[in-house]
């Protein structure tokens, strides 16, 4: 029997060699817990993320947009499922994960606690929210836990269309009349800062970063990813011809990056704590959907049991 210290040393060496950790391999409890927390939060975000968009399916301006929106939302359900499956390989079951979401114990990305007020918001969500998610997820394709990395590769492959369709919605509005362009600008005004918040607290205040970097669960820090997103997005806003709502935003020749203003961390904490504009509504909707689907799950199981008894 190897002692804990030896196991830990071998584990770290394996990670340093860029070897993936697989479900049945030995891993420190803290690594397992961190992954369950992070992967399940990620899964919950995909599931709750369907709600602001689901709200617009019946109001999409034409059939093409409606079919695209449906396909995007269906992808998100699938992404939630890939991630729940990855979390389950760590020894936690699906029902526990769902309970943790519905009871409010588990977190999901705060961005989905903001309302989608206009059709332009479908554009801004695709362009900015999915854009920020992609920056995060591309980095996670190289995460040290095998099943998580594989889920991320699959998600990244599918997610790229989400961002492009969102940008295309805004492009159409920005090339339209003054009212349409105003609608696009208004959605950028409302979604810009919450999108920057998606990368989480600043490195100096991030509770989990050091450990997660050491174990290569995270490959880049929150601030590095946020900077990457800003650098990538500013030129895209320029092509649209709408203005990012930040007076401090400007190119810094010396750093080779855009400087940008301070995030309102008070608002961030407020929403994380459950007091954003839609926190209560999102969870109520999820609970309602879960409860109302109960009889379907029960009936399917009863049918399966009856059939297997007949065969046996």
């Amino acid at each position: 029997m190897k002692d804990q210290e030896q196991l830990l040393k071998e584990f770290q060496e394996k990670i340093d060699r860029e070897e993936k950790i697989e479900p049945k391999d030995w891993m420190p409890e803290e690594y397992r817990k961190t992954l369950i927390r992070q992967i399940s939060q990620h899964a919950h975000s995909e599931v709750v993320g369907m709600l602001p968009e689901g709200n617009w399916i019946t109001r999409a301006p034409n059939l093409r947009r409606k079919a695209i929106l449906l396909a995007k939302i269906q992808d998100e359900a699938g992404h939630g499922l890939y991630l729940y499956s990855a979390a389950e390989t760590l020894g936690i079951d699906r029902d526990t994960l769902i309970d943790e979401l519905l009871s409010g114990k588990a977190k999901y990305s705060s961005i989905f606690n903001y309302p989608a007020l206009t059709w332009a918001d479908m554009g801004a969500i695709g362009w900015l929210v999915d854009g920020a998610a992609i920056v995060n997820q591309v980095a996670l394709c190289r995460t040290s836990y095998g099943p998580y990395a594989r889920a991320m590769v699959r998600i990244c492959k599918e997610e790229s269309f989400h961002q492009r369709q969102g940008y295309e919605i805004l492009l159409a509005l920005c090339r339209g009349n003054a009212a349409q362009k105003k609608m696009a600008q208004d959605s950028l005004n409302r979604w810009w800062w919450p999108s920057l918040m998606m990368f989480g607290p600043s490195d100096k205040n991030s509770a989990h970063t050091a450990h997660s970097m050491n174990w290569k669960i995270k490959r880049f820090t929150n601030d590095e990813l946020r900077q990457k997103f800003v650098d990538m997005t500013v030129p895209q806003a320029n092509v649209l011809g709408i203005k990012i709502p930040d007076d401090k935003l400007q190119w810094n020749e010396q750093r080779g990056h855009y400087d940008f203003g301070e995030i309102n961390w008070e608002e961030f904490n407020h929403v994380v704590k459950g007091n954003g504009p839609c926190n209560r509504q999102r969870l109520d909707d999820r609970r309602k959907a879960h409860e109302e689907g109960q009889w379907v799950r029960d009936a399917a199981m009863a049918y399966a049991e009856k059939r297997s008894n007949k065969i046996a």
């Binding site: 396909a71 269906q74 992808d75 699938g78 499922l81 890939y82 499956s85 389950e88 699906r94 594989r150 889920a151 699959r154 599918e158 799950r297 399917a300 199981m301 049918y303 399966a304 059939r307 297997s308």
Partner: peptide, 22 residues
């Protein structure tokens, strides 16, 4: 990957939706 289903037939139907949309 993996998924939950009540029986094998449902697993195939769900796998079609989840793992072969493209």
């Amino acid at each position: 990957g993996s998924l939950h289903a009540s029986d094998a037939q449902m697993a195939i139907e769900n796998a079609r939706d989840v793992y072969s949309r493209r």
